[in-house]
Amino acid sequence: MERRLKHWGTGYIFIFPAVVLMAIFIVYPAVKTLFQSFFDAGGNWVGLKNFITVLTHYETIDLSRFPKKGPPWGSLINNAIWILIHLPVTVLLGMLFAVMLNKIKGGAFIKSVIFLGMVIPMIVGGVIIRFLFDENSGVVPLLMRTFGIEALDFTWTAYPQTALMSLILGSILLWTGFSLTMHAAGLSTIPREMYEAAEVDGAGILRKFFFITVPMLAPVTSVVIAMTLLYEIKIFDIVYAATLGGPGGSSMVLSLQMYFYAFRRLDFNLASAVATILTLFTLIVGIWLVRNTMRGEKR
């Protein structure tokens, strides 16, 4: 008994500093934010009023425009569009690049170049995106001009129809490196013998890809999906640096909306409501990821 107590006691002593720090810097602010979202600035209980205010504001969902008219549609819709386009493209591109560059000469160098996007701080990435799509100095409008696509030869971030898309494309450029690196690492764990056996059975490149590579990479892919989803839900810095959510809110996202509520409107209660909504979304992804990982471990 004494030995057991000593064993557990030592464990508790070691985790104590981490628990204290997490309680101060993570648990307390999270709980305080949650509480704040149910009160007004005067400290009066307002129930779900802050959530209703946020969710019915045109900056969150503009039902008078969505889906019949063009953007701006609101931050929630923009986040959803971001996920719908950015998630499959980055995951698939990362996987394809990882497979294609796996065995070729100079593959490691190309992978490093693609990974550079991950090394750049996202706030700098936002500035790069702004200039990348700028009519006067950007590569993208220049390419459009060169190929005669004059309809797209303008500053993409300045127009509501293209502002969000320019950010998503820029973000794909920056984030694909993550998916690529994870999948490349996953590829190295697939036993060679599986491919050799498939070749003996007469399997071609596509069959090997779909019946060996994709299923064997599934655990890695699920981590990539979860991390990418979290990145997309809380996307902030790119939007802040490139468009500030504009023009007219056409590239507004939830995190930026929360920032404006807190630091421009100085309404910390509304900002807390947005933070709580964001936390709920991230919790869903987080729980899915943890359950997936645990299921994988049991297997």
């Binding site: 300045a158 509501p160 959510g245 023009p247 007219g248 404006f260 509520y261 421009r264």
Partner: peptide, 17 residues
């Protein structure tokens, strides 16, 4: 306040639309 940000942003929209 936040209105200033809104003013700037809406005018940016008006300029192209």
């Amino acid at each position: 306040g936040d209105w200033q940000r809104l003013f700037w942003d809406q005018l940016k929209l008006l300029w192209v639309s």
